[in-house]
Write a protein that binds this DNA or RNA. Sequence first.
DNA 1: AGATGGATTTTCT
DNA 2: GAAAATCCATCTA
Length: 208
Amino acid sequence: MNYEDFFTNRSTSEISKDLLGRTLSFNNGNEILSGTIVEAEAYVGVKDRAAHSYGGRRSQANEGLYRPGGSLYIYSQRQYFFFDVACQAAGEPQGVLIRAIDPLTGIDTMIKNRNGKTGPLLTNGPGKMMQALGITSRKWDLARLEDSPFDIDINHKRKIEEITALPRVGINQSDPKWAKKKLRFIVAGNPYVSDIKKKDVKKNHGFI
DNA sequence: AGATGGATTTTCT
DNA sequence: GAAAATCCATCTA
């Protein structure tokens, strides 16, 4: 299995769901920072009102979405960066946004990168996650996953008790049809999922 | 625990 | 000039 196969050949929601439980890692040149993906959102292209590629919108800023599955689309907003992987064949601008990871290695460095924050505050949101990894530029935008310091383990994943589908976060509500679509997938009960309620957190973090 | 408003910067109109 | 796939401090209960 290679990245291009993994990120094409099935729907972007299926790909997003299948990313849960897999390890995302970043080699900062000194050590490997990594964590288990516990939250991801699908953006399904030109018909998706909430996608950056809605209506075929295309510019230097969102070019990554138009690249073949397995290409990186890194984008910035309000001093924060977002990590997306393009899905589907070249020219079909769909993608998955990785929103949160349950940290595994390099945790001390993540705490430093996050100015002393600890626990779920480390990585329970897309901007926070990238800050924890120490990403401060769009340097790797448009790169292929296999040619970047990022890695997603597509050969192994942790067993998950239950996956929940929810509406996506922070998107324009002017078109309820798309705003309400359940294209956000989470590991139920994991404390690193953004906005999870304390009472919903499970002791095993949602893994078996 | 839930709600509100400010910060800040890239990108497009 | 305004909007944006966010985050955080601060308020109220």
